[in-house]
C-alpha cells in the first residue's frame, strides 16, 4: 500500500514536471514570436523577390534549406539572428535573387532602394532581437 502511494506520488510529480516544461517552452516560443514581426513594406519586397523559392511549399529544396520566410518566427533567437544575417549578406553581395532566375523573371530583381531597405531591416531586426 505504502509502495503504491509512493509510486503514485512520484508519477504525479513527473507528470507535473513534464507539464511545467511544456509551459516553459511555449513561453519561450511565444516570446520569440512576439518580438519578431516583418513590417508590411519589407514583406512586400520579400513577396516579390524571395518568397517564391523560400517558403515551405516551394519546389527548390536548396532554397528551402537556406531560408523559409514563412517559418522564420519559429526559429530560435540564435537561428533567427543568423538568418537575418544571411539575408543581409546575400543582398549586400547581390547574390539573390540568382541571375538564372532573373533571366526568366527580370521583374523580380531587387531595386537598389529595395536592397538597401532589406539590408537595413535585417540588421536592425537582428539588433532588436539582441537588446
Amino acid at each position: 500500500m505504502m509502495l503504491s502511494m509512493i509510486s503514485l506520488t512520484a508519477f504525479a510529480f513527473l507528470l507535473f514536471s513534464a507539464f511545467q516544461a511544456d509551459v516553459q517552452s511555449e513561453k519561450t516560443m511565444s516570446v520569440a514570436e512576439a518580438t519578431f514581426e516583418i513590417p508590411e513594406d519589407i514583406q512586400n519586397i520579400l513577396d516579390k523577390s524571395c518568397f517564391g523559392c523560400h517558403n515551405v511549399d516551394a519546389t527548390s529544396d536548396k532554397a528551402k534549406k537556406k531560408l523559409l520566410i514563412d517559418q522564420m518566427h519559429e526559429l530560435s533567437k540564435i537561428k533567427l539572428v543568423a538568418a537575418l544575417g544571411d539575408i543581409r549578406e546575400t543582398v549586400e553581395n547581390g547574390d539573390m535573387p540568382p541571375q538564372k532566375f532573373l533571366d526568366k523573371f527580370p521583374d523580380k530583381a531587387l531595386t537598389a532602394e529595395e536592397a538597401e531597405k532589406l539590408k537595413d531591416w535585417a540588421g536592425k531586426a537582428a539588433d532588436d532581437l539582441l537588446k
Binding site: 540564435i78 539572428v81 543568423a82 537575418l84 544575417g85 549578406e89 539582441l130
Partner: peptide, 11 residues
C-alpha cells in the same frame, strides 16, 4: 558585433 558572431557560429 554580437549578431555577426552569432551568425558565424551558426554558419
Amino acid at each position: 558585433s554580437l549578431r555577426d558572431q552569432l551568425k558565424l557560429l551558426v554558419d
